[in-house]
């Protein structure tokens, strides 16, 4: 990790040159346009058609037998959505899960990045080891979590028994919820560490020197100098993680699948259950569209930040 820079400055230069050559501009546009066409066409097919389909599904009763058929039912599913108390509970649970996992990941990730930053020797080796969980398939992470917390032979259950905890971790409501939170934290804290460390490495030495000359102590330097200068990187980390946190459901699906007694039933799990266990496809589409709206709102903030920093070209 040598020199690190935010791409903030880079793209600017990319566009300055073109207006000087008006005669070439049209050709340039055409070439760029041609290069974009195949990818964007395929992406359009892969996103617009499914989007329209899911929209249509939310207003229709979908029959699968004897060929797929739609019959229009108006706002029936949307009306049900607003009256569905269970679903609101599940949204609330999703929110708690989200705040706990992303919050813990941000705090732990930042803490670890600060420790790594102070580490002069072996930083890259330690970082590489800390990153490993990110590459683990979430299904495997979940199943591994089940293995470790099994009440008869799980390594972690055994450790907890040594300190006096006897319960079946995935069997109790609270412990199961905390366990899936812990698995998510295990898997995704490294992402925050990685991003934050890149931000820290970019804090220029002169800034820190100035702080030291002013007689700032380590805590003051951290609070008033370092954290402010990596705030945009922290925000990027938070948003990237947030968008993914809403996407993923694998770990819960293979560990508790929403149980015990709905203790871990977050919205994506509910959606899968509604769609592929009960085949209530129209209602699942409504739940899905609301999830999509939430994600797009977060993505808007993300792009807005990149934009203000000049990061979107």
């Amino acid at each position: 990790m040598g020199v690190v820079s935010l791409t903030i400055e880079a793209p600017e230069t990319g566009q300055r040159a073109a207006p000087d050559r008006p005669h070439r501009r049209r050709g340039r546009f055409g070439f760029h346009g041609a290069m974009m066409t195949p990818g964007l066409l395929l992406l359009a097919v892969l996103s617009v058609i499914p989007f329209l389909t899911v929209l249509a599904m939310s207003f229709s009763r979908v029959r699968l037998l004897g060929g797929v058929s739609f019959s229009f039912v108006g706002l029936e599913y949307w009306a049900r959505f607003f009256a569905d108390v269970d679903l609101w509970t599940q949204w609330l649970r999703t929110l708690v899960f989200f705040v706990l996992t992303v919050g813990l990941e941000m705090v732990l990730g930042l803490g670890l990045a600060l420790c790594l930053w102070k580490l002069m020797r072996g930083r890259n080796a330690v970082l590489s080891l800390l990153l490993l969980p990110m590459f683990v398939a979430p299904v495997i992470a979940g199943l591994l979590g089940r293995f470790l917390t099994d009440s008869t032979f799980g390594l972690y259950s055994w450790l907890l028994r040594l300190v006096g905890y006897e319960g079946d971790i995935l069997g109790g409501s609270y412990s199961a919820f905390l366990a899936v939170v812990a698995m998510d934290v295990w898997q995704w804290t490294p992402l925050i560490t990685l991003i934050t460390l890149a931000g820290l490495t970019a804090v220029s030495q002169s800034v820190r020197e100035a702080a030291a000359l002013d007689g700032a102590g380590p805590w003051q330097t951290l609070r008033h100098i370092i954290l402010p200068s990596i705030s945009s990187v922290l925000l990027v980390a938070l948003l990237i993680r947030s968008m993914d946190a809403i996407r993923y459901f694998d770990i819960i699906a293979v560990t508790t699948n929403g149980g015990p007694a709905d203790a871990t039933k977050v919205v994506p799990i509910r959606l899968y259950e509604t769609a592929f266990r009960f085949f209530d496809l129209g209602y699942a589409a409504v739940i899905g569209l609301v999830m999509l709206a939430v994600t797009i709102a977060i993505a808007r903030v993300f792009v807005g930040i990149l934009d203000r920093k000049g990061l979107t070209r």
Binding site: S47, I49, P50, F51, T53, V54, M57, V62, V68, M243, I246, R247, Y248, F249, P268, L271, Y272, A275, F276, L281, A284, A285, G288, L289, M291, L292, T295, I296, I298, A299
Partner: peptide, 14 residues
């Protein structure tokens, strides 16, 4: 960034 569940649903029909 679209949640996978939201993509799975229409693709299942298509």
């Amino acid at each position: 960034m679209a949640p996978i569940a939201v993509v799975v649903l229409p693709l299942f029909l298509l």
